[in-house]
């Protein structure tokens, strides 16, 4: 029983940890999105200041950088909201998992204590015999709740009093409700992860374009006499931000994949 118990706690723990990591990426996105908006503004300012005689070729590049920064900023803001929503869904889901686990465990204890001595009595997911520990150790499945009514039918009237039967039915209903909640929330979360993954592909494209424009600006900068330093700063800031976006993006991809695996385990009814 001890092992089962810790196994379930670990599953809930992994999901909660994943949820905290996603939330922490959302926080990093929040400060990134501010820096990107500053970069977009700087780009516009630089473009306006270009000396028309010496740097005509820089105008479309700097304008382009400002525009792409604005676009990537909007995407990152949306991604941040997705992460916050995702972490909220997962955390509510983990509460439902805890409840589901504790209710079905209670049902298993009730069944084991009632069935002691009734040989061959079985509830799907909890093969019952005289050893209560064995029945609690067996893998928990989602068929358990549905099998209860059949189990009630298999009992003689003196084996279960009215209190206990009513309470077990109440628990079975609550377990079913929690199971439905887990399925809905896990499904919603997977959908958010998939949308976020698509958004990450778009960000990836914009990030590469940003990096390309920054390199082009850097190639053209030595031709400028008066504002070369300012442009080199812009390039440096841009590349620095591109690097940070890449880092956070990688982390989110990693966490999203991990989250998806954990949630799919739940939906395929194997994980807990």
């Amino acid at each position: 029983m001890k092992n089962r118990h810790f196994q379930s706690d670990n599953s809930v723990g992994s999901i909660l940890k994943n949820c905290m990591n996603i939330l922490s990426v959302a926080r990093s996105f929040s400060s990134l999105s501010f820096e990107i908006s500053m970069l977009a503004k700087n780009g516009s300012v630089h473009a306006a200041r270009v000396n028309r005689n010496e740097g005509q070729s820089m105008v479309p590049l700097v304008d382009g950088l400002a525009e792409i920064s604005r676009d990537i900023g909007i995407e990152i803001e949306t991604l941040k909201s997705d992460c916050i929503l995702l972490s909220r869904k997962i955390s509510i889901c983990s509460i439902a998992i805890k409840r589901y686990y504790l209710y079905t465990r209670c049902l298993a204890i009730c069944i084991a204590s009632t069935s002691q001595g009734t040989e061959g009595s079985r509830v799907s997911g909890y093969p019952l015999n005289s050893d209560a520990d064995d029945s609690l150790n067996s893998e928990m499945t989602y068929d358990f709740v549905e099998s209860l009514s059949k189990w009630f039918d298999s009992l003689s009237p003196d084996q279960l009093d009215n209190h206990q039967k009513r309470n077990m039915e109440h628990l079975a209903l609550k377990s079913r409700f929690n199971r439905q909640q887990i399925e809905t929330l896990a499904g919603d979360s997977i959908q958010i992860i998939e949308n976020a993954t698509k958004r990450l592909t778009m960000i990836e494209r914009s990030r590469l374009t940003m990096s390309y424009i920054a390199s082009s600006i850097s190639i053209n900068t030595p031709n400028l006499k008066s504002s070369a330093d300012r442009f080199m700063d812009l390039v440096e800031n841009t590349l620095d931000l591109v690097h940070q976006i890449e880092k956070e993006q990688d982390e989110l991809v990693k966490q999203a994949q991990m989250g998806k695996v954990l949630l799919k385990k739940l939906l395929t009814r194997k994980g807990l």
Partner: peptide, 19 residues
Amino acid sequence: GSEIFSQVLAALCRHVDIE
């Protein structure tokens, strides 16, 4: 505590209506 919840509930189920 939540660690013993299932056992307490199972014992209680024999005596009273949970609701």
